[in-house]
Computed example of a mutant assay.
Amino acid sequence: MKVSFLKQGFLLIVLATGAIACRKNDDNSNPAGKGGNATVITTLAHHQITKNIINGKVYIKYNTQDAPGNGIYDDSAICNIVNTVPTASFDSLKAGNYYLYGTGYDTSIARAVNGGISYSIPDNSTTTYTIQVPVTEGD
């Protein structure tokens, strides 16, 4: 009888440990992405100069501060020229980490430019953030 009780206790401990160990790690209970109150307005800037860039496009990746290794982003927006500045916006975003990647063509050097930056939205308040995405001609 005592051996059976020990076996049952041991089995209970193993099952409980297994249930805890197999549980999904949910450190981010409110992940970044659509469904929030924030708006991010992006501008493309080559050496901090925001004019002269045409055919711009900005891509966004949710829940990361790094460019995706597979090159797949969650959303994108074409830049509109607003007061000579290439501008794209993403609305209804939640608090969290994002990676922004921009592409375009700088008419002042007649070359394609691209680059990215990470950004964190600190809370779920209704706020508009303006972020300058640095781009360069690269190699």
Rank of each mutant, 00 (worst) to 15 (best):
N114A: 15
L100G: 02
A19M: 10
G33Q: 05
D91N: 11
L44V: 00
Y129N: 12
K7T: 14
T43F: 04
D91G: 11
A21Y: 04
K34L: 09
P122L: 12
G96N: 04
T87P: 02
S120M: 12
I78K: 10
L6W: 14
L6F: 15
I117R: 11
A19K: 09
T42I: 00
A38P: 06
I81N: 11
D139G: 11
S92G: 03
G33P: 04
T64Q: 01
C79V: 04
A67G: 11
G102N: 09
G18Q: 05
G9P: 00
A38I: 02
N37Y: 05
T84I: 06
A38M: 00
S29W: 03
N37Q: 04
T127C: 08
C79E: 09
D75L: 02
G33K: 02
Y119K: 08
T128M: 08
Y101G: 03
A45N: 07
T126C: 10
N70H: 09
Y62C: 03
Y105C: 04
M1V: 12
P134H: 00
T42D: 11
Y129V: 11
T43R: 08
I41V: 15
T39R: 04
T84V: 09
D26L: 13
I53K: 01
I131Y: 01
D91S: 14
D74N: 15
Y73K: 12
N25A: 12
G138C: 09
T126E: 10
S108Y: 12
T84K: 13
G96W: 00
L6T: 13
L12H: 10
Q65E: 11
Y101M: 07
P68V: 01
D27Y: 09
Y99E: 00
P86I: 06
A38G: 04
G35Y: 01
Q65F: 08
L15D: 04
V3F: 12
A32W: 02
A32I: 01
H47M: 13
P86G: 10
G69D: 09
I54T: 15
I13C: 15
G102H: 01
A16T: 15
G33V: 10
N124D: 15
Y129A: 09
R111P: 03
K24C: 06
Y59H: 07
L11S: 13
I53V: 06
P86A: 10
I53M: 04
G33Y: 03
M1P: 09
K51H: 11
G36T: 02
S4C: 06
V85I: 14
N55P: 03
I41R: 08
D123I: 00
T84Q: 07
G56L: 02
G102P: 00
T43D: 05
A16Q: 06
D27G: 05
R111G: 12
S118A: 14
L11P: 05
V14A: 12
T64N: 00
K7E: 12
L11E: 10
G69Y: 02
A45V: 01
G104D: 00
M1F: 12
T42M: 08
I54K: 14
P122W: 09
N25V: 15
D66Y: 15
S118F: 01
P86T: 07
A77W: 15
Q8S: 14
F90G: 00
L15T: 13
K34V: 15
V82T: 03
S125L: 13
I78Q: 13
D91K: 11
D75R: 04
E137R: 06
N30K: 12
K57I: 15
S108A: 14
D91M: 06
G18I: 03
L93G: 08
Q132K: 12
V82H: 03
V3A: 08
D106I: 05
